[in-house]
Amino acid sequence: MTPVLSVLVHNKPGVLNRITALFMRKGFNIQSLTVCITENPEISRMTIVMSDMDEAALEQVMKQLHKQIDVLKVTDLTDQAMVARDLALIRVSSPIAERAIIHSLIEPFRANVVDVGRETVTVQVTGDAEKIDALIALLRPYGIRELARTGLTALQREAASSADPKRAGEAQVLHI
């Protein structure tokens, strides 16, 4: 299981350090972490993709996060209907002559070329991690020069939070 946690925290200096220090201290590994401000400027949302772990370990992660005084809410999105997106910028070798191939490869991914040079193009793609991995694999034979990914950010779908309020409200949110 690769858990995805959505964590609302106070938007204050040092909070990110508290969370990462907690992960280090407890030996929790993370695959990605995104942090950004929410609709409320005093609150940030962290979307944390954990490395594979069993349920007991995940429970401990959530409880430890909840112990942090600057953490307001911890939600486990892993088995939830969620909108989860990763964004990648991929600079790929692309001599002018081959450029049409790149375009045809990325088109089904609804990816865009956002920078064009003589030797390379930079492709922007958004989607879930599998989709981005697939595009990277397709482009790799052409020579990926540089790659930047944002990591996953996610929100619960409205259907999940409204259709079954008990599940959405209680089962995944850690109430302590």
Partner: peptide, 17 residues
């Protein structure tokens, strides 16, 4: 009083926070 202690080391049948 600390929920994070419950189930941390010993599997617990009746957790009481």
């Amino acid at each position: 009083i600390d929920p994070a202690e419950i189930g941390k080391n010993v599997p617990t049948d009746i957790p009481v926070v």
